[in-house]
Amino acid sequence: MRIVERGGHGLAGAPDATPSNGSDTVWGLISGKVLAYLALTKPRVIELLLVATIPAMLLADRGTIDFPLILATLFGGWMGAASANTLNCVVDADIDKVMKRTARRPLARMAVPTSHALVFGLVLGTASFVWLWWAANLLAGLLVLATIAFYVFVYTMVLKRRTWQNVIWGGAAGCMPVLVGWAAVTGTISWEPIVLFLVIFFWTPPHTWALAMRYKEDYKAAGVPMLPVIATEERVTKQILVYTWLTVLATLALVPAAGVIYAAVALVAGAWFLLMAHQLYAGVRKGASVKPLRLFLQSNNYLAVVFCGLAVDSVLGWDTIASLLS
Rank of each mutant, 00 (worst) to 15 (best):
G125T: 03
Y243W: 14
A172F: 12
P15L: 03
P206E: 07
S128Y: 08
A210P: 14
Y155N: 01
T18G: 00
A136M: 08
S23Y: 11
A103S: 15
N137E: 08
A140G: 12
S190M: 04
L179Q: 06
A149L: 15
L324P: 03
V51D: 02
V242N: 03
P177I: 00
L143V: 07
K33T: 14
T251E: 08
V45W: 06
V199E: 12
T251P: 10
T244F: 07
F201M: 10
Q298V: 04
T126M: 13
E233C: 00
M99G: 03
G13S: 04
N166Y: 03
L246Q: 04
R161F: 10
R101T: 08
I30P: 01
R162K: 13
R44A: 07
S31L: 14
T41P: 11
L71A: 14
R285F: 01
L11W: 15
A108W: 12
R235H: 14
T163P: 07
V180C: 02
R161Q: 15
G223L: 08
K238A: 12
A183R: 09
L143I: 04
W27C: 00
C175A: 13
D313R: 05
V167R: 01
Y215S: 00
G7V: 15
Y151I: 01
L310W: 04
G22V: 12
A212F: 12
